[in-house]
Simulated assay, not measured.
Amino acid sequence: MKTYKIVVSYDGTDYYGWQIQPDKVTISHMLEKQFKAVFKKNIKIIGASRTDSGVHALGQVAKFETDINIKPEILIKAWNNLLPSNILIRSIELVNSEFHPRAKVKQKTYYYNFTTQKAIPLISNYVYSLKSYRHSIDFDKLKVALNIFVGTHDFRSFCTGYEQESTIRTIDSISLVYLKRYKIYQIQVKGKSFLRYMIRRIVGACLEIANSKKRNINELKVALKKPNPEQNLFTAPANGLILRKIIYF
């Protein structure tokens, strides 16, 4: 058996996330289905990040094993030809059989895009449009709010509440940039690993705080100090979130 590492880009709009689910169309299901259609072999795709329904990726990393003796450059061309236009395998390479996409991760980078006006059609699937916030976002307050989450914290207040593992995570950096060309704001989050909904809950909570004169940043500090998954925190929509890249040691 040969082990392959693949890097995949996808528009998650029409999919129920990455992970295979019964009776649902997911990214990994589509990859496996079209591989079998081309090569008449079953494979099992294992991904680095289980992105949720509606979330996108530019650099998702995954692996699979097969006994097919075929060059990667031929493999990628044939496979991509049968995949729908909203999924693209960017690269395929042979790797050691011990490689696992969730092991030895050094850092993941996620982008969250939002705008305070109607997004241009070219990118509207990948941007959360806060039209009602147009005149009231305090961007200085937003930057301060986001910075609270940098470092190592217990993020139980900022996940789904179903996690059985430790909810302590480390965020290496969070930055806010304005992409003038597209007239959107982009929150760039970097860290080794994230909990389900973690980034969307952080972004949602910070945007709500930055949009209100009655609410203050201390609410976020309290939520971190008193972990509780039942916190009444806004979860930012999935369409603004993009898995940008994953780097390994």
Rank of each mutant, 00 (worst) to 15 (best):
N211A: 13
K214Q: 15
T116C: 00
S166T: 15
K108I: 04
P121Y: 07
I148H: 00
C159M: 12
S129A: 05
Q231D: 03
K143S: 05
S136K: 15
N125T: 13
H153Q: 08
I199Q: 05
F99W: 13
N228S: 07
K106R: 13
I217Y: 08
I217S: 11
T167S: 08
K104L: 12
I199L: 10
S136A: 08
E208D: 15
D172Q: 15
R200N: 06
K221D: 10
D138P: 00
N218G: 02
M198V: 05
D154Q: 05
T170L: 01
E230R: 05
Q188M: 09
A223Q: 07
I174D: 10
L142W: 05
Q164S: 13
T170G: 00
I137H: 07
E165R: 14
G151A: 01
Y197D: 01
L122N: 13
I120Y: 01
K226S: 09
A119I: 01
S129R: 00
N218S: 09
S212V: 03
Q117L: 11
S124Y: 13
E165Y: 08
Y182K: 07
T167M: 14
S166H: 11
Q117S: 14
I123F: 03
L142P: 02
Y178Q: 12
G191W: 00
I137K: 12
E208V: 06
I120D: 07
D154L: 07
T109Y: 07
S166R: 14
Y197P: 03
Y126G: 08
T160F: 03
F114G: 02
I168G: 14
A103L: 09
H153T: 04
